[in-house]
Amino acid sequence: MQIVNIHNAKTNLSRLVDRAAKGESFIIAKAGKPLVKVVPIDQPASSQARRVGFMAGQFSVPDDFDRMGGEEIEQLFGVNT
């Protein structure tokens, strides 16, 4: 595992963060003494990732969905049709 001094870490923070995000851990040291270990945040496995359409077929939307409650809304706002 690579050890980076704190001055170098400040200078190259962007590059180091990119490397850590790709899975490469490293240690930041001050005066040769290790201070912190930088590791990537665990990402969910592809099977755990959220996906579009995961509830497909589990419910249905009524045909009059866009008109539901229309009369009540008109009464609340004083609209006469």
Rank of each mutant, 00 (worst) to 15 (best):
V39P: 11
Q75D: 07
K22I: 03
M55E: 09
V36C: 07
N8T: 14
A49Q: 04
G32S: 07
S46N: 13
T11F: 05
L35R: 15
F77G: 00
T81I: 01
S60G: 11
Q48L: 10
F77C: 01
S47F: 01
P34R: 11
N8I: 01
N12V: 09
K30R: 11
I73C: 07
D42W: 01
M1Y: 00
T11R: 12
I41H: 10
Q58I: 09
G69W: 12
H7E: 13
L76T: 15
N12S: 08
R67Y: 06
N5I: 00
E72L: 13
N5Y: 01
S60Y: 08
A31Y: 04
T81A: 05
I3D: 07
K33G: 05
P62W: 12
K30W: 04
D18T: 10
L35G: 11
E72C: 10
N80A: 07
T81Q: 11
M55C: 06
Q75G: 08
K37W: 02
I6S: 12
F65K: 08
F65R: 05
K22P: 01
Q58H: 05
A21V: 03
A9I: 03
N12M: 12
P40I: 04
S14G: 05
K33P: 03
R51G: 14
D64R: 11
P40A: 13
A56K: 05
P44I: 15
F54Y: 12
A45Q: 02
A49D: 03
V38E: 08
S46Q: 08
F77E: 00
I73F: 10
F26H: 02
V52E: 12
E72A: 15
V39R: 13
I3T: 14
I6P: 02
G70L: 12
G69S: 13
S60C: 01
L16F: 07
G57M: 02
S14Q: 12
L76W: 06
S14T: 13
I3S: 13
V4Q: 00
F26Q: 02
I3F: 15
I27R: 01
I27E: 05
D18P: 00
K10R: 11
A56Y: 02
R19C: 04
Q2K: 11
